[in-house]
């Protein structure tokens, strides 16, 4: 019984393969459009994932820096710190003295002799001491910022640098969301077109084998046996379409990464692609085959009389 099933599976697969190669150019066109759709969808998904990780990375680095006037005493700093800690949703408040700030600045600029000279020229430390406030949740910064503005120590504050960060984050958020929406719409259209084209190709190969189906029915072939070659044909379209899409993806990620690398250095789409190569390949293959099988099912349901 099992042997019989394997025999039938092998034979129907061979039939599917024959259908696939029977009209090579039609198959080629079908595979190409499937590859294009899979490529658009997976490239969008990859860009979306990286975009989100960039936003999250920035969000995790958000804080509110409160720059204090130079004349604020250590006792006052402790009092202010205490008051901020009491504001709900504040996770931590760290004091950065102006000396520390200067050290950090020098470290970050990498001992640039021009900057070092400039600082020497000023003679005094030009930076302010600050309190760095982090929230339990990035959405709570607005509330914390307004509490600080209404606090009793506003006269001791030189400046608060929260608003500028916020605008940048909002801009990136909007850009990522817009790109995601455009990707979903474009991907959806491509998928629809590719399913329609694949379904039509399978319908054509069904049409050319019309008499064969009639004979198969008459000699008692099971419905499954009649349908399987078309399912395999769909699987083959999906499989080869996915392979082409997977071959194109690293070229794109490399290109995008080299562009994005000039703006954001810590995230590389290309590195991400290779880190999750197996997972991405599996997902694209599974999705491609699924599209092929769905197209086959539509063709079978609509046009195959059993």
């Amino acid at each position: 019984m099992l042997k019989e099933k394997f025999l039938k599976l092998g034979r129907t697969f061979k039939e599917g393969l024959n259908n696939f190669f029977y009209n090579f150019w039609l198959s080629f066109a079908t595979v190409s459009i499937l590859a294009l759709s899979l490529y658009v969808v997976s490239a969008t998904a990859l860009l979306g994932i990286t975009g989100n990780s960039i936003v999250n990375n920035i969000k995790n680095n958000i804080n509110i820096s409160i720059y204090l006037n130079p004349d604020v005493s250590t006792e006052d700093v402790d009092l202010i710190r205490q008051e901020i800690t009491n504001i709900s949703d504040v996770a931590s408040v760290d004091f950065v003295s102006n000396d520390q700030a200067l050290d950090n600045f020098i470290n970050n600029t990498g001992d640039d002799p021009v900057i070092l000279d400039a600082i020497k020229e000023i003679g005094d430390n030009p930076l302010f001491s600050s309190l760095v406030v982090t929230a339990k949740d990035s959405a709570k910064y607005d509330g914390i910022a307004s509490s600080i503005e209404k606090s009793s120590f506003t006269d001791k504050i030189n400046s608060v640098n929260y608003t500028r960060n916020k605008e940048d984050i909002d801009k990136i958020n909007v850009a990522v969301e817009d790109a995601g929406k455009a990707g979903i719409i474009l991907g959806g259209i491509f998928i629809l077109i590719s399913v329609l084209i694949t379904f039509n190709t399978i319908r054509l190969s069904m049409y050319s084998r019309k008499q064969e189906f009639e004979i198969m029915r008459l000699v008692g072939a099971s419905n499954m046996y009649i349908q399987m070659p078309m399912i395999f044909e769909g699987i083959l379209y999906g499989f080869f379409g996915s392979l082409i899409a997977l071959a194109l993806l690293p070229l794109t990620t490399k290109f995008v990464s080299s562009l994005a690398g000039r703006i954001i250095s810590q995230e590389s789409l290309h590195a991400f692609y290779f880190q999750y190569l197996w997972m991405i390949s599996g997902a694209v293959l599974a999705f491609g085959i699924l599209l092929g099988v769905i197209s086959s099912f539509i063709a079978i349901r609509r046009y195959l009389k059993i």
């Binding site: 008499q211 000699v219 008692g220």
Partner: peptide, 20 residues
């Protein structure tokens, strides 16, 4: 109702192939 691209043998064997 014969399949023109199959030989006599294959036309007949076809009926056995499809039932495994």
């Amino acid at each position: 109702k014969l399949l023109s691209e199959k030989t006599v043998f294959r036309n007949v064997s076809y009926a056995l192939e499809v039932i495994g």
